[in-house]
Design a protein around this nucleic acid. Structure first.
Length: 136
RNA sequence: CCAGUCGGUCGGACGACCGCGCGGACAACAGGCGAAAGCCCGUCCGGGAGGAAAGUCCGGGCUCCACGGAAACACGGUGCCGGGUAACGCCCGGCGAGGGCGACCUCAGGGAAAGUGCCACAGAGAUCGAACCGCCCCGGCAUGCCGGGGUAAGGGUGAAAAGGUGGUGUAAGAGACCACCGCGGCCCCGGCAACGGGACCGGCAUGGCAAACCCCACCGGGAGCAAGACCGAAUAGGGACGACGCGGGGGCAACCCCGGCCUGUUUCCGGGCCAGUCGUCCGGGUUGGUUGCAUGAGGCGUCCGGCAACGGCCGUCCCAGAUGAAUGGUCGUCGGGCGGGAAACCGCUCACAGAACCCGGCUUACAGACCGACUGGCCCU
RNA sequence: GCGGCCUUCGUCUAUCGGUUAGGACACUAGCCUUUCACGCUGGAGAGACGGGUUCGAUUCCCGUAGGCCGUA
């Protein structure tokens, strides 16, 4: 698993598509240079756990569980031409690990299906506009 | 057995599968990079968070900078005595004060007759120290007041009221006098000292606050491993030395007057930097990488010295080194706690908390378990 | 890593060691108004936490918690 190590990379990914799940928020973006060296490309992952989540022990545990879930399942399912950042959330600390793994797989696959790179956040079209207010 | 005090140790155990980073070894074959050395990949082995790793409140090592020197000033810190230590605001032992029946605990614990300041309210009076209610004497009279004087025992106020208690004494009283206690001075004895004990003298004006200013004694240069050193694409042009020469004002000129900034402040003597041109020489160092970076005031054990902190001899061991940051994830068995149940068993749950240059302390957080010493009760022999 | 500051009603703030901890906005009750707003009168409401010094602490000292700023 390739890691993201530069602040610059994290900032770029943060502008990309967002996929919320129970234990984490997944951000992803297609690498601009991905097309060049296509065959050798590999998905890269970064992890963010903020201080609001808890003390150092809690933050370490969240990050390590997310990392392990990506290593076991997420990396294989990921689009190799994309960068991913998982922002840890509190439930990742003690939710069942199998659920966390399936969430990671699902989120990574869902991110790959998002077409546009930059901020497709509310891309899903609104459900039918119900009950238009009719004036008197 | 119950209640309590002090000191210390540990802080889940075992196993399976899949991983991470570090160190070491690797015969051959296979793969990638390279001209090569070699590196990557791979296989095996070893070890991989703490008692607080935390807070960053002190003290050091190490590294760089300033390293002129002196004096005074300023600033900050510490504060009974002795010892331990590399050092400390830490530790040990002792002393004093306070608390507890006791084991034991707590204390920023120098100086208030060097000076300045403050002591609200209440109270007559709050520190060059007094008389409100009282008590007593004298005088006046219509026996209860008025005037004068003496006094500080009692009352009242207050956190604190001119040593305290008892007696002698007196009109009433008072260190006025006496005994004991307290205070001060001086001497003797014990102790390295803080201090303790005793004798004599003084009848004894001389409250508290210095975590108020302050005085005294002692200590303190600044920054911090993102320190510092090395290797180094692209890009931009830097530094050192030498020569000419150089800041501001006036003047045609010779020349005259005045310098500015930095080195904690001031003073003295110093030092450095204050336009440019030319020449010679050296390169400089951003992303990144290597190093610093783990053998150290080191851990464990026997013995010796010391009441102890600690020190010494000898033996033995090598015990994390990341850098968007490894030390993990999942599962099983056992263990601990809580709840339910007659039981088998079932359910929930696992303290505080994560190294970042290293070390000595302090402080704070912490489920539970164990060991030792001691104190006060009760019972039995 | 280093070094500096702050914490007082719901909010913003004041305070020489002695107060009933003051003010403004907000809240609330009443008055005014046909009603609302404005205005007037009144009321409730605070020293982050734990120790110490002192007769007495929001103030002085120590520790803890939280927050902010500077610097590399």
């Amino acid at each position: 698993m390739q890691r993201l190590k530069k602040r610059n990379d994290y900032v770029k990914v943060a502008r990309g598509a967002r996929t919320p799940r129970r234990g984490f928020l997944l951000q992803s973006i297609r690498r601009p240079d991905a097309a060049d060296n296509g065959a050798e490309a590999e998905a890269r992952f970064g992890f963010t756990v903020t201080k609001k989540m808890g003390n150092a022990v809690v933050r370490n545990r969240i990050r390590r569980r997310l990392k392990e879930a990506v290593r076991l399942a997420g990396a294989a399912a990921a689009d190799p031409e994309r960068d991913f950042v998982l922002v840890g959330r509190r439930p990742a600390l003690d939710m069942p690990f199998s659920d966390l793994v399936s969430d990671v797989v699902g989120a990574v696959r869902a991110a790959a299906s998002v077409k546009t790179g930059p901020r497709g956040g509310k891309g899903a079209p609104k459900p039918a506009p119900s009950e238009e207010e009719t004036g008197p």
